[in-house]
Design a protein around this nucleic acid. Structure first.
Lengths: 340, 340
DNA sequence: CTGAAAGCGCTTACAG
DNA sequence: CTGAAAGCGCTTACAG
């Protein structure tokens, strides 16, 4: 295949060490030697073998990114940011999709446990403890969005309670009093859904609106069809909602579809807020009001913390709270464009 | 850090070769030896070092996937399929984003040229020749969607001419005669856009409708804002269109937004067709008629062809034409749900 | 059925 | 400023 250091050394008539010095741009190589070596490199089309370099260094230069699925825009957008942040530090990213049919199979077949990664950024949204247990014990880990067990690893997340409270306050501020919530999940006790539900309830309580369990609809997953189905359920109530907080934008877009298909007006009849700020919501009709997490900040914090761990940092687990912003768009704004 | 084969061998009182035999499940290891070795493995928590294995084998077990950006749903969905197909063959996927600000910088900084990959699947939609030139000459390559130069590498794509012709015929079949096209690009002569434009023109010609260059609007990139802007341009014409073929779904969703915001009805006033069948179009209002490429087939063909090359196959470049289907939804179907 | 040794391509003390 | 040698952890002929 390709030429090795040894080949270059032979051709240039120098030692392997000298070639290595040139390749790695070390000082103290005479100009004459350097150019002779460079010539040999060009002539042979030599390229360093990173695998060998990694073996020597005891690391691969690759970090893993474990996500439920890239088909969910929020994760795709986040992956984009994380790959960018990692590349800026000269690291590569290997993506592992964890959701869908057969977590276990995939875990085994892809050899995630012993795979060539120096660290892992993982979004545990739908991950069971089993997945984590299957990982190398010494693998540096950063959790995205959600704690798994107490103080397991570094964490970066937005303040979910506050975010949900602000979104709900916004809906209440429009004068709505039948505010529903879509996306409840009881899988993980301290999970995202639980925190968002808490924020929702805090806002209701502060406004003196009674909490009605009937208005809280769970979602098995956070895709558009789940939101659509949940909204159909809410519309079938004797006293249906006039506003909905959806725990992500995909649920909100599904709910929106159900409302429009039922001939209802958004936001005139029902106002909607989502979470994530995916691009879809900026071009739907009506456009979608949402809580926008600072994805760039999340990606950069995750990569920074992970690389610190990879480089040997040994402090107790840390936690970064990323910024979030409520973006008011047409789905809650009566003078919006597409009101008809 | 972790234990090596040597450590296990020492603890079990056997040679390294024997441990390797056990780990790789070779025949001809006595049951007694096997269990003794297995015990040592468990005790030390030994895991094979893949980097070393890869160095030995002369390959990394990793393939690269170079895409414009994951933020474009079509690419995210395709990446999902490709990662899945690769994992089924026990290969990992490293993603390289090529678009956006500073292709060149990223190419250099990420070391794509010498990176640890055994082969590359690349979607050259927005890639310049420079990127390809920067790659290892001996790197097995599969192109996605679009040829770059004649017979450069294996290719998998749908029949773009036929797909565009069918979509246009569908619009003409609704009785529309002012059929616009959004997404023209003159960057690459034999590129996707050129082929789709050709199919569009063939359909017009076959229906005896005169080709009006005014109705063909270029798009610099294929995002929602490009589609929205192009549609605004079309609406400003003296004789605006009553149907639009968009060269991808994102353009179509952008165009849809412009139409609805302008108070027009879709499809009553203007019918729309896209290409890609991304999930967004299944939940927009109205839902989006589209050409659906068989993404699973594309992913599997690409991975299969690439791995064949990696394994030494040396035939001339091959070409796979993937299936596509026209999915008729509300944006061209008058009796659709959300007509109001 | 098992062992001792070479080598994948690199870097890094250790000499000179 | 440059060389010779060891070693990262693995697999694979080659012996026995």
């Amino acid at each position: 295949m390709g030429a090795s250091l040894k080949d270059v050394a032979r051709l240039a008539g120098v030692s392997v060490k000298t070639v290595s010095n040139v390749v790695n741009e070390y000082q103290h190589v005479s100009e004459a030697t350097r150019s002779r070596v460079q010539e040999a490199i060009d002539q042979l089309g030599y390229r360093p073998n990173l695998t060998a370099r990694h073996l020597r260094y005891g690391r691969s230069g690759i970090i893993g990114l474990a996500l439920p699925e890239l088909g969910i825009p929020y994760f795709a957008e986040l992956a984009e940011e994380i790959i960018g942040a990692a590349e800026r530090e000269s690291w590569s990213v290997l993506i592992d999709q964890t959701d869908g049919r057969g977590d276990r199979e995939r875990l085994t077949s892809s050899g995630a446990r012993s795979r060539t990664i120096d660290g892992l950024i993982i979004s545990p949204l739908t991950l069971d403890a089993e997945y984590l247990a299957g990982l190398r014990a010494d693998l540096p880990l950063v959790l995205l969005g959600e704690q798994v067990g107490p103080g397991t690893a570094d964490l970066v997340a937005i303040d979910n309670v506050t975010a949900a409270r602000e979104a709900t306050e916004h809906l209440l501020g429009l004068g709505r009093r039948r505010v529903a919530a879509i996306g409840d999940q009881r899988v993980s006790p301290g999970g995202t859904a639980t925190l968002r539900l808490q924020g929702y309830r805090e806002a209701l309580a502060a406004a003196g609106v009674e909490y009605d369990p009937e208005l809280v609809v769970p979602a098995e997953s956070y895709h558009r069809p789940d939101g659509a189905a949940a909204m159909r359920l809410l519309l079938s109530l004797a006293d249906p909602p006039d506003a909905v907080l959806c725990f992500n934008d995909l649920l909100a877009l599904g709910a929106l579809r159900t409302l429009l298909a039922a001939g209802l007006r958004v936001p005139a009849d029902v106002a909607i807020v989502g979470v994530d700020d995916i691009e879809d919501g900026r071009f739907s009709t009506p456009t979608l009001t949402t809580i926008a997490p600072d994805k760039t900040q999340i990606a950069e914090a995750a990569v920074t913390m992970l690389l610190e761990r990879v480089n040997g940092l040994a402090t107790p687990p840390r936690s970064v709270t990323a910024r979030h912003t409520l973006l008011v768009r047409e789905s809650t704004h009566l003078r919006g464009l597409a009101q008809e």
